[in-house]
């Protein structure tokens, strides 16, 4: 973990202040529309710090809060972080876990990709991971806070945009997931089961049951690539 790597990552990730800021702003507006206070929304973006997990759990928001379903959804949708973490261990094999656990708090898809790419060019450097993670986190959390500070009301088109954000955001992730699928059947089964089950159980559980059935079918297919 070097200071040079930290600086290199920090500078390379500066554009994420804007892009993550814009995304965080929309997420903040969604929280605002939901009636969540500023401190809760900022804490959500800071501690959970995952657009996917936040979008999924937002759509499950109900009274009483379906905590168990939310946790299962977080685990399932963020399981990719387990693979990213395992890959980082291969890169930084010599580095004790306690020295990188803080950096992992800010691990994001983009910082992992950038760190992997930088390791190919300049050799593995955990400083780069931490440096590149910081602008991304500041953008995301700052954008969420800005939604409350700016005089933006969640009505009209903004209300519609905020309501549809979780579903649309998840839809934009599908093309990248397609490369892992061997055929369209598991996805079709996920959709049909979720649709059928939604008549009998809470929507949050119908998503998990549908996705679980599709994953089982995926696992039974001969190859996954």
């Amino acid at each position: 973990m070097t200071a040079a790597g930290f600086r290199r990552g920090l500078v390379a990730a500066l554009p994420f202040l804007l892009s993550n800021g814009a995304a965080g702003l929309v997420m903040g507006l969604t929280y605002k529309g939901l009636g969540l206070g500023a401190s809760h929304a900022i804490l959500f973006s800071l501690l959970v710090y995952s657009a996917t997990a936040q979008a999924i759990t937002l759509s499950m928001w109900a009274s009483p809060l379906p905590v168990a379903a939310m946790v299962v959804a977080c685990i399932a949708t963020n399981s990719r972080y387990l693979l990213m973490g395992a890959h980082l261990r291969q890169l930084f094999g010599g580095l004790a876990p306690r020295k990188i656990l803080l950096s992992l708090f800010l691990l994001a898809d983009a910082s992992w990709l950038m760190t992997s790419s930088d390791a190919d060019r300049n050799g593995p450097d955990a400083g780069y991971l931490l440096g590149s993670s910081i602008p991304m986190a500041i953008g995301w959390v700052g954008g969420t806070a800005l939604a409350y500070a700016a005089p933006l009301a969640t009505n009209g088109p903004l209300k519609l945009a905020a309501a549809l954000l979780p579903t649309m955001f998840i839809a934009t992730l599908l093309p990248s997931q397609w490369k892992n699928a061997a055929s369209p059947w598991p996805w079709l089964i996920s959709a049909v089961v979720a649709l059928l089950v939604s008549h009998f159980v809470d929507p949050s559980w119908s998503m998990l049951i549908g996705g679980g059935c599709g994953t089982l079918v995926s696992m039974m297919e001969r190859t996954d690539a």
């Binding site: 399981s79 990719r80 892992n180 939604s198």
Partner: peptide, 30 residues
């Protein structure tokens, strides 16, 4: 392998639920 395959399937099931609750505008937008 499970960790690679689970997200895509869950995303699809999630989108189905979102489209159901979002009505026609949600479906078209998605």
């Amino acid at each position: 392998r499970f960790l690679r395959l689970a997200p895509g399937n869950l995303f699809i099931a999630f989108i189905v639920g979102g489209c159901l609750s979002g009505g026609l505008a949600g479906l078209v937008g998605t």
